Simulated assay, not measured.
Amino acid sequence: MTNQLTFRIFTEPQQGATYDDLLRVARCAENAGYDAFFRSDHYLKMGSVTGEPGPTDAWTTLAGLARETSRVRLGTLMTAATFRQPGPLAITVAQVDQMSGGRVEFGLGSGWYAEEHAAYGIPFPSLRERFDRYAEQLEIITGLWATPQRQTYSFRGRYYEVVDSPALPKPAQQPRPPVLVGGLGAKRTPALAARFADEFNLPFVDVDTACAQFERVDAACREIGRDPGEIIRSVALVVCVGRDEAEVARRADAIGREVEELRRNGLAGTPDEVGDKLAVWRERTGIRRVYLQVLDLSDLDHIELFAGEVAPRFR
């Protein structure tokens, strides 16, 4: 098994960040050699932080970054299907892909955070309905992108109907931008991943949980005759790396977390310590990508430290 891993920066701007903050981090990630810059798609802060100055829209952000970066790939973990209609979302993502020269990756989820829906007047149906809508959105968006030029696309589902769409614009990437699916659902999530995903992502889980869910995705692929190896396995983990224990503790304190909790649940410690943990993840789960959840967006040295001291071990 190859030792190679690619690393991506993953931000949570609903916790308090401006577009300019995100631009600094994205440019830092690009200059430091990271594969991609991703952000969450949320409209309300979580936990005890104030969330000021307020949320930024994920796809507005990525459109701006598409023009202000040149190499790093751009995407969401995950856009909520409850936030947008599938047709306009397909148009938005295709346009940002064009604006970036083909660097967009499209993560879509069912939506889960009830409070943000209440805070901004977004309908929040039952879990079953959210998942049904999510499945239809995946079908429609990928169907629109896959429709040949000068042909039309139609779809009739329980929640959405598309009639004779010209299926434009087309994304720069063909046949489409990579599609990311993720989550811990035992049946429907693996089945959707098998049908639609180029990558399957698990956020903030332990190695054993990840192994079990990746196996479910593999089984779902085999059920429909798809090679499980076509789907990239990835995880998202909070990162807190320091050159010594004092620096690790300072960075943990800056994000309101305990060092030992971060060691258990994320990637915390010295570069050697974090590298050893990543090697275990790679060996046991077969992951090929890691999304590093960076919570202190002012600490660009943290991003550069990981790139310089941990990432080279996995090239």
Rank of each mutant, 00 (worst) to 15 (best):
S40Q: 10
V96A: 02
A210C: 11
L108K: 03
T79C: 13
R150V: 13
D198H: 13
R282N: 12
D41L: 08
V238Y: 12
A252G: 07
V274Q: 00
R103T: 05
T69S: 09
F106N: 01
A212E: 14
G182I: 01
P271W: 03
V49S: 06
G229K: 11
R284T: 15
L297C: 07
T56P: 01
A63D: 11
E283M: 07
L89P: 07
Q213C: 07
T92E: 15
A193C: 05
Q137D: 11
A252S: 13
S298V: 09
C221E: 08
A17H: 06
R73F: 02
F214M: 09
S100Q: 11
A236E: 14
A197F: 08
T147R: 06
R263T: 04
S40W: 09
V162T: 09
F200C: 04
R158F: 08
C240D: 11
Q149F: 14
V259M: 06
E116D: 03
F214I: 09
Q85H: 15
I122M: 15
L237C: 05
A236D: 11
A81D: 13
P123N: 07
H117R: 04
T69R: 02
L127W: 11
A114L: 14
A197W: 07
D296Y: 07
I287E: 00
E230D: 14
F10T: 04
A279G: 06
L89Y: 06
R289C: 11
V241S: 00
L108V: 05
E258L: 09
V163K: 11
R176V: 01
Q85Y: 12
F155Q: 03
G242V: 02
V274K: 00
P166T: 00
K170L: 02
R313P: 03
E12P: 08
A246Y: 04
V217M: 08
K170C: 02
L144I: 15
T142P: 09
G185L: 01
